[in-house]
Design a protein around this nucleic acid. Structure first.
Lengths: 149, 149
DNA sequence: ACTTTCTAGTTCTATTTTAGAACCATATTG
DNA sequence: CAATATGGTTCTAAAATAGAACTAGAAAGT
């Protein structure tokens, strides 16, 4: 007993998602991977994470199909960690976290990094939830329905 | 030392966000709060979380301005936990996690709960990132720029 | 060729967090 | 006013985390 709780078989997709990437470091690793980080050392020094932690995180994320190991792009004998399609799918999760952080976690004169369109350098638009007909939805306009398979 | 790493002053909004809600339970509590859960017991039995964990999580989330304590809506002497504006701002983070989970974490015949428009019962649209001009952006079209104060 | 340094880890220990059970005070119900 | 529900706190064992020390193979310098 006292095993860490397991949400892998929960019927809620949010719970399953958190089971996979719901810890301190995983999303930061994925954030950096989306920014082009690929090598062990690059992750380690960039994040300031302990090497042991990083090693187990990279292994777990690889096992879960978020990252995959590839030969180094510079021709050396080392390997690299690159996002899979599944891993790249987390882009919008990172963007949502980023926009929330920008809105609520910075003081007036605190510098923050920001997400821009590569081509123009212009900041991206805010995320918004739409109905199928294109109308904007607030959280009060939605509800979760139980599975009824 | 060996204190849990602190990202509160990182210049990246993603890091700061994870500092606040980047653990197993917080986002699940917020998910349930968005679904209308308000009482200690309701959270506890719904999540299957240990009472001690829940108590510290509710306290931390309250201290960080995500939840606030309010008199019970049924007139009893108990208190309730309700989301603040800041807490409700996490709605899109939950939606992004949900859509990713739906896409990548379910087998063909596994039932899942889903997010629908309350009025019509129709499923919501997929989130997408847009440029200021309304054009759709993929992750390859964006980059993060360092703060330059 | 051989020594040095870099890379990518593994192992070890101390501290912290988590899970769960047991306990407890106050509020509500019968 | 006794029983039960609510909302916790406290305790212990197990697991996760942080950081330092160590290691093996690759690359670079001389």
């Amino acid at each position: 007993m006292v095993k860490r709780v397991n949400l892998r078989d929960d019927e809620c997709p949010v719970a399953r998602a958190l089971d996979v990437i719901g810890d301190w470091w995983s999303l930061l690793i994925i954030r950096d991977a989306l920014d082009g980080v690929r090598r062990f050392n690059e992750f380690q020094t960039g994040l300031g994470i302990a090497k042991g932690m990083l090693a187990t995180r990279l292994r777990d994320l690889t096992e879960r199909g978020i990252l995959e190991s590839a030969p180094a792009s510079d021709g050396s004998a080392y390997r690299e960690y690159v996002l899979t399609e599944k891993g790249r799918g987390l882009f919008l999760v990172i963007v949502a976290l980023r926009q929330w952080g920008e809105d609520h976690l910075f003081g007036p004169n605190q510098p923050m990094s920001s997400l821009v369109e590569t081509k123009t350098g212009a900041p991206v638009a805010r995320l918004g939830l739409l109905a199928q007909n294109g109308q904007r939805l607030e959280w009060t306009d939605t509800k979760v329905t139980k599975a009824e398979d």
